[in-house]
Design a binder for these strands. Structure first.
Lengths: 217, 217
DNA sequence: ACCTGAACACCGTTCAAGT
DNA sequence: ACCTGAACACCGTTCAAGT
């Protein structure tokens, strides 16, 4: 049973994070799950921060940028962000993990960033602009991937209905004189047109980039 | 010295968070700072989560939306996001605090959201679109406010120069064959054109919204 | 190389009790 | 109403030691 390895630790950590939240991902909990002493983990990771980085790297590594081709940059940028969103959405803990660390310490994240940087440069943006655009793009992907709970797998229809109901109620029971729009639109907030959530965020940021590109020339 | 109150606790917590990071904000640490027993804090906040919500509410409450007027919605939206960014940027811990909690539990955040919702609806977007746009807008404000360290107050020129140097070096010393663009643009990454950072993120998202508005009609 | 045992310095929180 | 004391069940991490 020499199963303990950096990879097996990280996989178990992600599993715990996905199902019980990031706070449940603890050195000691991980150790007992893996049938080992807490200190055993310190052989594979210098400290907890490195473990979190390992988790992030593993998560993002599921996304492999397509090799360069000659399609226009807008298509390739869209493919990049949609691919990243798709990969991250498979793991509920993805956003929290990525938030807790410095993303520049995550090799697979740097790879995606490098790719985005190449594409924005190819789009004709200056260096400084490319840096910011690529940064915001990846940031947005992470935020968009972290969809409301009823867009995720692993819930029955009844559970989703109940979550939506509770959430709408909590919005509707807000004081209507201080939050008039929020209260009035409570229903729209929880019952978004199907498909809108997935595409809208991507459309928004890509339209922004496109518009900056047009303004520049 | 009956100085202990929810407000004084929250203020001290923000102070600690700003200077030493959110992990230093601890019930016990707070208690000793305030010259009181840890359990005293539980009279004012049910638990640590409520304390974090209190911090977030206090931070965002520094932003007061301007009363409605008849200027075009693009101007008012821009003013909203720029104002929020300005207020949040005064506190280094703002982003981390807001990340750790459910923003729908933060009254002052709901007030800003309500305002944004009113403006996007006034812009002519449908209910569902308004919900998503306002959500992304506030999200972006938080992300943009969390600027790289050298855009913040409280650092000498020497400190900033050193931080920039180290960061550039760490980018430049990445393997150039796997991250060619990152390595080549390391300098641009840390030495952004002055003023670009502040405006670019806002321009990007507002251009996106504008473009969606145009497409719709 | 890989893991264990014991110990240290922390956490958040409950519950009964004080004033 | 507001705060304390003692206790509980956790954390991450170090360091020396085992195989």
């Amino acid at each position: 049973m020499g199963k303990l390895s950096a990879a097996s630790i990280v996989e178990r950590a992600i599993q715990i994070g996905d199902t019980e939240g990031i706070d449940a991902v603890t050195i000691r909990r991980l150790a007992t799950d893996l049938g080992v002493t807490p200190m055993a983990l310190y052989w594979h990771f210098k400290n907890k921060e490195q473990l979190l980085i390992g988790m992030a790297d593993h998560l993002v590594a599921n996304f492999a940028p397509k090799p360069a081709d000659d399609r226009p940059w807008r298509l390739r940028l869209r493919e990049l962000i949609e691919g990243l969103i798709h990969v991250l959405r498979a793991h509920p803990c993805a956003r929290t993990v990525l938030e807790q660390i410095d993303k520049e310490d995550v090799p697979s994240y740097l790879a995606v960033w490098n790719e985005a940087l190449g594409l924005t440069r190819a789009a004709g943006f200056a260096d400084g602009e490319s840096c910011l655009i690529s940064k915001y793009l990846l940031q947005s992907a992470i935020a968009i991937a972290d969809a409301p709970v009823h867009f995720r797998s692993g819930h029955t229809d009844e559970e989703i209905a109940e979550i939506v109901r509770v959430k709408r109620l909590s919005l509707e029971s807000l004081p209507a004189d201080t939050y008039p729009h929020l209260v009035r639109m409570a229903d729209s907030m929880v019952n978004l047109p199907p498909g809108l959530y997935d595409s809208f965020g991507v459309d928004l940021i890509l339209a922004g980039i496109e518009s900056l590109a047009a303004r520049r020339s």
